[in-house]
Design a protein around this nucleic acid. Structure first.
Lengths: 167, 167
DNA sequence: GAAGATCGTCAAGTATCTTGACTATATGGA
DNA sequence: TCCATATAGTCAAGATACTTGACGATCTTC
């Protein structure tokens, strides 16, 4: 019954982990390419992962460490890079002589703005490709997964809401 | 005036790219932890990414290079590591004096078997958490995304099929 | 104030990739 | 047959993104 799949479909994995990995990777590649095309050559995946945790109003470096899943030294190194690129700046925390505040520079905020635009463009392409219903279902399922614990009660859950941004 | 949002909900991103990244990362972390717990301490994400492309019946190293999105040197280094761990072995290709065949060892096949088991366990937990309908919708949307091109026509698309495996 | 915790930094090492250069083998004509 | 070129794999060096460990500076507490 194999029917000889296709020309090139050589039976790649098809479980949830693989699919998530592929989808995530595809998105990141697309986003990074668009950001570089927009003139943000400093943009990398690791930096994007960190920027996603930095509040636009700025925050304590230690708070950033709590949020991210990586070591404080790794964060520091990433911040060193972002600071050298002029994306963020670090100021002494007036409230605590040990602490430092991480804040976006003008250039950093500009990049975030471009990032928001690019994200919306990618999302629009996704909706075009799989349809709004499926896209909404996708977001809803991912949000539910992230929320964790809760069981399968309100499966309907039209929610899904609209596009949120931030970054 | 800040009102102090909640205890910990500090407004993380909520767009498709972020959600995919988080979900993918969570899955990988869970999978790697389970594999290490099962005695496969050599298991890492990068290696998993490569193993996902190696057919259980073995294949040419060059074919592996075509499939994966990374450089042949990177693949070689990963294979060096996997070979040193005794997961795969490389044999000369009798059909081509330049080529080499990559094949799982017994230990490697055992690891794949454990990997299949772990994947099914994780998937069961996912279904428990978000419900079968949502899980099916999630897989369907991810498959549709991966399929690319096509537009939003058969939104219903009950398909989604059941759990497939492989790795 | 002194003990101990927290905040950030410095240093060194590892894993995972990259590009560039090279060897060995295969292939396709002249 | 023999040479030009392409392909398969390797070796070497370097970049990025992390890790653990050690440390000095500052806060907090009693």
């Amino acid at each position: 019954m194999v029917k000889e799949l296709d020309e090139k479909t050589e039976a790649l994995p098809d479980h949830i982990g693989w699919r998530l990995w592929q989808a995530s990777r595809a998105w990141q590649t697309e986003f990074a390419a668009a950001m570089r095309a927009a003139g943000h050559g400093w943009f990398t995946e690791a930096r994007a992962g960190l920027l996603g945790h930095i509040e636009r109003s700025g925050m304590r470096q230690s708070a950033l460490i709590e949020r991210s899943a990586i070591s404080k030294q790794a964060i520091q190194q990433l911040l060193d890079g972002l600071e050298a690129e002029g994306i963020v700046e670090r100021l002494p925390d007036p409230q605590d002589g040990r602490g430092k505040l991480v804040r976006y520079t003008r250039k950093g905020l500009d990049a975030l703005r471009d990032g928001d635009r690019v994200k919306m463009e990618i999302e629009r392409r996704y909706v075009d490709r799989i349809g709004e219903a499926r896209f909404t279902a996708l977001m809803g399922a991912l949000r539910a997964l992230a929320a964790g614990k809760v069981a399968a009660m309100d499966e309907d859950a039209g929610v899904a809401g609209e596009v949120v941004e931030s970054k």
